[in-house]
Design a protein around this nucleic acid. Structure first.
Lengths: 191, 191, 191, 191
DNA sequence: GATGAATGAGAATTCATTCAT
DNA sequence: CATGAATGAATTCTCATTCAT
């Protein structure tokens, strides 16, 4: 065997890193961060325990990375089109996007909702989270302002809460939740 | 000297039990169930580790009891007046009640929201939870039906999600959240 | 109520002491000394945990007393008739007595056999045990000597081992063991 | 540097496992299963407490493994030659073998005798034990039948009890017990 | 890079014993 | 005398992390 090129090694590293993160996210979401052991993740990801520490310096670092990159992804997914201003059509599109994302990244959102309630944990991410959600709320405020709402701020906060609440309920009971009907109603009532 | 009377023992047990449960709830809510040790609770409650097991047969049993009694309290708090049917005034009153309860029992709700996202944990309570929330949803469905909504079921699910979402956001940031404004808006838009 | 007389109190004390010992013996025999808790015994004997310590100063003291009085009982049961010498008829009678005793005091013998194998425990009783068994062996030696055996000592040791072995096997499987047949054979072959 | 080869790991694991089992057997035999702590075994075996659980999933599993492999050894030691039928010479040889084994594996037999008396424990091994002893008893029955005994079954049970009894007494007092003389007598009287 | 044996701190739990009442 | 609440030391077991190979 000839030695692998630098690029190949780099690719292997990246893939493996992602595999570990994906596995860890699944496990964290299913069993909780504390109840998931490094051993479990290593076994399921097909790497040795020792190697885990080659990729992440600690269990907490692994969690932080998962959360951080997850939040970045959300940001990247939501932001692109509308840098601050949003039309009615874009709003409708955004709603679909948000819930499509929740469906696709359900493990991430489960973990997110579970962690966010613990002050001791959430302080690790709070800054990053605000970076994502503050602009979003601002965008909603602008939208409702333009629309002539009496209290655009409360309206924006309300729709934010609604997204969280629907997501929360949906993730608690993915199979049975009438997500489409509810989304339809949200559009009618809030756009 | 004679042993304590049954009443004395009863009182001691009840008080201690409640003190342990209160402390445990605070700690569970702050640090998470897994990250809170029996030692921490014992120390904070001013009892020995061993005594904890005189009152609760395990850490899990302690959690279950806290959740179970908490859910009962919610039920008792919400249910009394409206056994299935609800008027407009009662609906408004109910909304105030729900959020007053969240404010008062914020630790309980934090714990509740954190646990509910973990399938491995939530299955311990799911039945009890449904006992409380199914009738509530039904009540909302009836309300919106009577009001002539196009899709009363979706409407009921939506308001349920909204309560959760508002609660969730409020508990994440108790000090800053504009709860009153949001509640006011909910009443305008959903009653 | 008039206060009980000294004699009545004495009787109560004695009865209760015996009840505790009987219960403890059953539990020790069933679950082992270590695996039996003071709480279990107290509950089963119908007394409070605290009171146990009014009768026995420790769990170990309770065990020692049970063993000591049990060994005394064996001694009293076996010895009376034959203080040193034994006839053929008496030997046959003794065999019946020994196994009748094992049947009646099966819990005691189970505990005895279990404890005796642990040097750390058996040293607590070894002296007392020897007090009982040395004379018995001596009696057998005399018997076989008189009978003209080639090696009366080995013969005595052998019959001693046989009693233990039969008892051991019988207690392991009380319901199925063909004790009577085996006893009959012992008499034919060893008297 | 490259990781250890499979063979190296295999060897390490086998050796450590055996060392732990040997140490545990000594300690269990001396102090009893319950009174021997994992810490004691670990310290004496020169490994950490944690490592014990890398090799045996629980204290009970360790005990079970020791007993199971011990019983297998007895079986392997006793069985080979005589697959069911046994001559006079073989019987004599078997007796020597049995007691040689008891001498060599005295810790195992002590533990065996101690555990067997506790229903709660013995049920863990009873099946395996019967697998070993039932054929042995059958072999004795056949032997005494061929020899023309009146009651070959009782005779077989008796010799079984005798082996247990002699072993029991010998192990209780290894240094002083006149094992050789007793064995000689057994051969004279029972072969 | 890769492995998994090894560690050790800390967790939940048990239980003999004490002691205020 | 009698009770059972209370203690604390000891036990089993887990697991993130390290490290020799």
């Amino acid at each position: 065997m000839s030695p692998r090129t630098k690029e190949q090694l780099e690719t292997i590293r990246k893939d493996r890193r992602q595999a570990i993160m994906d596995t860890a996210l699944e496990e964290f979401a299913s069993y909780g961060y504390e109840s998931t052991s490094i051993s479990m993740i290593a076994k399921k990801a097909g790497v040795s325990k020792g190697l885990m520490y080659n990729y992440f310096e600690s269990k907490e670092a692994l969690l932080k990375t998962i959360m951080s990159e997850g939040i970045d992804e959300i940001f990247a997914f939501i932001d692109p089109n509308h840098d601050g201003v949003i039309t009615k059509e874009e709003f409708i599109y955004l709603i679909d996007e948000i819930f499509a994302l929740m469906k696709e990244k359900s493990s991430f959102y489960k973990l997110y909702f579970a962690l966010i309630m613990q002050p001791a944990v959430s302080k690790l991410f709070i800054e990053k989270i605000n970076e994502v959600f503050a602009p979003m709320i601002k965008m909603f405020v602008d939208y409702y302002e333009k629309k002539g709402s009496k209290n655009p701020f409360a309206e924006a906060i309300l729709i934010g809460a609604l997204f969280d609440g629907i997501g929360f309920n949906y993730l608690f009971n993915e199979d049975q939740y009438p997500l489409d009907e509810v989304i339809k109603l949200v559009k009618e009532r809030f756009v």
